[in-house]
């Protein structure tokens, strides 16, 4: 199981939890598990075709998954997936 850090704006959907755990062998599977456990997250995180919302950045252990294998990036136990808003900085 991987830890998933939840940004404040999404914590209503996770009952206020800052961090939850979710299973899966890839980042994409972890996000699917997350959405299955907390269905209210789906609209914010995923487009109708299952791709990532363009305003969400996903990091695996501090690395943007776009610099890895995107949603196909392998995940092992004790990895941390961090969800953050894309519209920041500059």
């Amino acid at each position: 199981m991987s830890a998933v850090r939840i940004p404040p704006v999404l914590r209503t959907a996770t009952g206020g939890q800052k961090q939850v755990v979710a299973g899966g062998a890839t980042v994409g599977e972890v996000l699917q598990s997350l959405v299955a456990a907390y269905p209210a997250l789906e609209q914010q995180l995923l487009a109708p075709d299952g791709s990532l919302n363009r305003f969400v950045n996903v990091f695996l252990n501090d690395t943007d998954i776009r610099h890895l294998d995107a949603l196909a990036t392998p995940v092992v136990d004790r990895d941390t997936v961090v969800l953050l808003p894309a519209m920041a900085g500059g």
Binding site: P7, V9, L10, T12, Q43, Q44, L45, N53, F55, V56, P85, M87, A88
Partner: peptide, 21 residues
């Protein structure tokens, strides 16, 4: 900017409905 939802002025930057800016 994404879904048009109005929000009161405050130190917030992400839409709670769609995660847009």
């Amino acid at each position: 900017r994404r879904c048009g939802l109005p929000v009161a002025l405050g130190p917030v930057y992400v839409c709670a409905a769609c995660f847009g800016p």
